[in-house]
């Protein structure tokens, strides 16, 4: 017990700041959740539809990519666009009947849909291999990843973490998406979406097919969820039903609230804050058991959220006026 930190009941170990492999992995999760929540931002922040099934779309993206590649022997790169089409098809199946109804029916329909997808993944063993999950879909990615790694080594960074290429690609996609979504939001198309969010009937009275815009918004969000699904699958190197629990969608909402509604860049800020707090707390040294520390991490995230609601309810990037004027 010569460690000087041991005399403090609370402290951070030195490795918290040096473990680059660990932080690379955290960064990938933050990036995946950024992408995941960009879809939610489009739906919730800009269209006013409460999509609670984003984890389901993520699951469909991940599973269709993995099944097509590992089980059907399809080319990895071909499986990506096809998995997007499959996810969009599911988005339409959920949205067509429920988006015409009152807003709360849609919210319920999406939760039910996402859980149905997870349970099917768990039980349709012939297709999904049940709880064992699917492996061996990422050979193509691995070779890409190695090329990127070699390139970085050539640049002079010799001990680059193995996951670093995925980190780069994930954030590259995230930034590209934030940029494009922000651009599209500023067009007349984006203006109609916001009008639908504000008052669907007013939009309809002005000749806008509100239903069609909500459906488009959902289809795009679903595709974005599918991309998050691929990245998650690659990060883990397997796809299992457990990764697509409803909690994933709720964490996506935490990211939204942290970053602020109706701002795409805020999503990244929210995701980075959440994952830094959540994972940084792993290094907390407390005289209590591991499981208690695990629970404590979520309690602290909860406290951060409560504090935010009290002092900056619009989130880091959200506009206060827009929130107050919402109704």
């Amino acid at each position: 017990m010569t460690d000087p930190l041991a005399i403090f009941p609370l402290g951070l170990t030195f490795e918290a700041f040096t473990d680059i492999d660990f932080w690379t992995s955290v960064g990938i999760f933050a990036g995946i959740y950024t992408i995941f929540a960009l879809g939610l931002q489009l739906n919730v922040g800009f269209t006013g539809i409460q999509n609670f099934g984003q984890a389901g779309f993520m699951a469909i993206g991940a599973y269709s990519m993995a099944i097509l590649t590992a089980e059907e022997g399809m080319n990895f790169w071909l499986s990506l666009p096809i998995s997007i089409l499959i996810t969009i098809a599911f988005g339409l199946i959920v949205g067509l009947p429920s988006l015409r109804l009152r807003a709360d029916y849609f919210a319920i329909a999406t939760i039910a849909f996402a859980e149905a997808i997870r349970l099917i993944a768990l039980n349709a063993r012939d297709l999904t291999n049940g709880a064992q999950g699917i492996f061996g879909f990422d050979d193509s990615w691995d070779s890409i990843s190695e090329s990127i790694e070699d390139f970085i080594i050539d640049l002079g960074w010799t001990d680059v973490p193995g996951l670093f290429p995925l980190f780069l690609v994930t954030w590259g996609i995230a930034v590209l998406m934030m940029f494009s979504l922000t651009r599209v939001q500023g067009t007349p198309w984006g203006r109609v979406l916001r009008a639908v969010r504000e008052d669907e009937d007013a939009a309809r009275a002005l000749g806008k097919n509100a239903f069609s815009y909500k459906l488009q918004s959902l289809a795009i969000a679903a595709s974005i969820g599918a991309v998050a699904g691929w990245l998650l699958a690659i990060q883990l190197a397997f796809v299992v039903p457990d990764e697509f629990q409803p909690i994933v969608t709720f964490i996506g909402y935490v990211v939204l609230v942290l970053g602020g509604l109706a701002n795409y860049w805020g999503v990244a800020v929210g995701a980075i804050i959440l994952w830094t707090v959540l994972e940084g707390l792993r290094f907390l040294e407390l005289p209590i058991s591991e499981t208690k520390i695990a629970a404590l991490r979520f309690i602290i995230v909860g406290l951060v959220l409560i504090g935010l609601m009290a002092f900056r309810p619009q989130g880091v990037f959200g506009k206060r006026e827009e929130m107050v004027l919402g109704d």
Binding site: E198, D199, A202, L325, G326
Partner: peptide, 10 residues
Amino acid sequence: FQITKALAAM
């Protein structure tokens, strides 16, 4: 509309 429908946050 009789009860106005301004798109408030726009």
